[in-house]
């Protein structure tokens, strides 16, 4: 097939657009490993800034990872049963609850944080602990977990599966843990990645809630941009990037449809 003028025009435009997005990322990453950004790459490459970031902000980075894990544990423990109830018992009450649950996504993080501060800010030790930020993160990420799990659950005819398990003698918990949860796993995994990614990257809510001792990774990043050399901010970005990229790729792979395609041909030959 001969490719015409329009093919090359489209290809050109696509490449330009990609460059437009990718070049700043590369520049930023490069800045993080350049000795002196004002002199350019010719000044040489170094890992010094990365170590410096680690020295300055290790606390923030580790806190963020810890928060993400804690947030994941809470949203999974709360979100999976919640999704189950929403799908299994659809009535006015549960639908209303679902709407309320989604509100924190629609409300600006700053407003949500302000509400938390006004209400609980007075409890000194609670206010200054990481749990305070965790609550903000859970409020913000829970709807993503619930939605993701509920989508898978409503596609799998839970009622009949449970009836089948019950006819074989399985009580509620056995059914829930051995039939419902394993079959909802794709939704739980997708939700989990979403929660971790969102929690690590969450800035505006966290920025309001943090104290000097509970700085998270993105808050530290803003701090470094504002008060440190550009190379340090860039190196920080690089670390952030390395942390978040694998999660995003994993999320994409999970979301990719047609994992079971190959079985269709097997079916045909069996019948």
């Amino acid at each position: 097939m001969r490719r015409g003028y329009s093919f090359y025009a489209q290809l050109g435009l696509t490449v330009l657009l990609c460059l437009f997005i990718v070049v700043p990322i590369v520049m930023s990453a490069l800045a993080g490993v350049t000795v002196n950004i004002f002199k350019g790459v010719s000044s040489g490459l170094t890992l010094r800034w990365i170590f410096e970031v680690w020295d300055l902000y290790a606390q923030s980075i580790l806190l963020s990872l810890w928060l993400a894990v804690a947030c994941l544990v809470v949203t999974t423990l709360a979100g999976v049963p919640l999704a189950y109830v929403l799908v299994r018992r659809p009535n006015r009450l549960t639908r209303m609850f679902e709407e309320i649950l989604t509100l924190p996504v629609a409300i600006p993080g700053l407003a949500l944080a302000l509400a938390l501060l006004i209400t609980y800010g007075g409890f000194g030790s609670f206010r200054s602990s990481w749990v305070f930020i965790l609550i903000g993160h859970v409020l913000f990420t829970l709807p993503f977990m619930v939605r993701s799990v509920a989508a898978v659950m409503s596609a799998m005819d839970m009622k009949t599966l449970e009836e089948g398990a019950a006819s074989l003698g399985a009580g509620f918990w056995h059914r829930f843990l051995h039939v419902i949860v394993p079959n909802a796993m794709p939704g739980i995994l997708a939700g989990a990645l979403m929660v971790v990614t969102l929690s690590i990257g969450e800035f505006n809510l966290t920025w309001m809630l943090h104290t000097p001792l509970t700085k998270t990774l993105p808050v530290g990043l803003a701090d470094s941009y504002a008060s440190m050399r550009l190379e340090i901010g860039s190196a920080y970005t690089l670390i952030f990037f390395v942390l978040i990229m694998p999660l995003l790729i994993a999320m994409q792979m999970l979301a990719r449809p047609g994992k079971k395609r190959h079985t269709a041909s097997q079916l045909a030959e069996d019948e």
Binding site: M156, D157, T160, L161, G164, A165, V179, P182, N183
Partner: peptide, 9 residues
């Protein structure tokens, strides 16, 4: 069951 209700996992 009509829909079999087998456990896909």
């Amino acid at each position: 069951f009509q829909s079999y209700a087998l456990f896909p996992n």
